[in-house]
Design a protein around this nucleic acid. Structure first.
Length: 270
DNA sequence: CCTCCTTTGAAGATG
DNA sequence: CATCTTCAAAGGAGG
C-alpha cells in the first residue's frame, strides 16, 4: 500500500524531465569564504541519483529554520565524548563547536591536558582506535619501533562543511529510509546539501571554518600532507569518467547498465 | 582484513 | 597558476 504509493511516486519522478543541472535549485555555490570553486563542481550523477532529482527539493529540515535552537550536532556514536564541560576547553575559543569534531576533543593530542580520553581523530596508525598500544608487556626491537609509531598517532583532517553536515544528518536520513549503505546515504545527503539555502549552508561553512582554526591551535605543526598518500590510493582515473570499469555503485547497480532496480526510498528522504 | 563506493570541500601534488 | 588527487565520515559489499 504505502510501498505502492511510493513506487508510483517514484515512477512519476522517473518520467519527470530531469532538472537539467541546477534547475530551480538554490545556487550550488554557497561559499562564503571560498577561495576557489571546486574543480569538480558538477559531479557526475549516477542514473539513480539523476532519477531522484525531484523537482520538489526536500524542504529544509524544520529544526534548521528555527535558528535559535542551535542544537549540537548529533554524533550518536560519540555522544559520550561530548559530555565535557566547556571549562575543560577554557583556553580555547569556546565559540567553536568543538563538540562536533572529534579532533577538537581533548585527548592525547591536547598538550598538557590531563584527560586521557583518546579521541577518534587521533588514531593509531593501525586505524583501530580501541587498540591500547601498551597492552603488551614485552617489547622486541620491532615492537619498540611500532610503539614509536603508535606514539605518533594520526591526526585526521578537520571536517569540512559538508562532512559536518553529513555527520549531523546521517542518522536522520538512515531513519527515514531503509538504506544503510553509506554510499547511498551520501548521495542523498549530497542532494540535500544542495537543497539547503545559503543561510543553512552558511552555518556549516562557519562551523568548518572555526574547526579548522581550532585544529590549527591544537596541532600547530600538523599538515594535511601528514596523511597524504597514507590511505590506499585509488586508481588514477577515478573521479573523471571512471565508470568504464563496470564497477557497482552504491546501490549495487552498475552505472552504465542503467536498468538497475530502483531502491526503495521514501520520497521524504530526497 | 582491506578497499571500494559515494558525497563536498580543503589542501597537497603536479604540470 | 590551473588541474588533478587525496582525505576527511560511514558502513555494506566484494575480493
Amino acid at each position: 500500500m504505502y510501498k505502492d504509493t511510493v513506487y508510483s511516486a517514484f515512477n512519476l519522478l522517473m518520467h519527470y524531465p530531469p532538472p537539467s543541472g541546477a534547475g530551480q535549485h538554490p545556487q550550488p555555490q554557497p561559499p562564503l569564504n571560498k577561495a576557489s570553486q571546486p574543480t569538480h563542481g558538477v559531479p557526475q550523477l549516477s542514473p539513480l541519483y539523476e532519477h531522484f532529482s525531484s523537482p520538489h527539493p526536500t524542504p529544509a529540515p524544520a529544526d534548521m529554520n528555527q535558528k535559535q535552537v542551535h542544537r549540537p550536532l548529533q554524533t550518536p556514536d560519540l555522544s559520550g565524548f561530548y559530555s565535557l564541560t566547556s571549562g575543560s576547553m577554557g583556553q580555547l575559543p569556546h565559540t567553536v563547536s568543538w563538540f562536533t569534531h572529534p579532533s577538537l576533543m581533548l585527548g592525547s593530542g591536547v598538550p598538557g591536558h590531563p584527560a586521557a580520553i583518546p579521541h577518534p581523530a587521533i588514531v593509531p596508525p593501525s586505524g583501530k582506535q580501541e587498540l591500547q598500544p601498551y597492552d603488551r608487556s614485552l617489547k622486541t626491537q620491532a615492537e619498540s619501533k611500532a610503539e614509536k609509531e603508535a606514539k605518533k598517532p594520526t591526526i585526521k583532517k578537520p571536517l569540512n562543511a559538508f562532512m559536518l553536515y553529513m555527520k549531523e544528518m546521517r542518522a536522520k536520513v538512515i531513519a527515514e529510509c531503509t538504506l544503510k549503505e553509506s554510499a547511498a546515504i551520501n548521495q542523498i545527503l549530497g542532494r540535500r546539501w544542495h537543497a539547503l539555502s545559503r543561510e543553512e549552508q552558511a552555518k556549516y561553512y562557519e562551523l568548518a571554518r572555526k574547526e579548522r582554526q581550532l585544529h590549527m591551535q591544537l596541532y600547530p605543526g600538523w599538515s594535511a600532507r601528514d596523511n597524504y598518500g597514507k590511505k590506499k590510493r585509488r586508481s588514477r582515473e577515478k573521479h573523471q569518467e571512471s565508470n568504464a570499469g563496470g564497477k557497482r555503485n552504491a546501490f549495487g547497480t552498475y552505472p552504465e547498465k542503467a536498468a538497475a532496480p530502483a531502491p526503495f526510498l521514501p520520497m521524504t528522504v530526497l
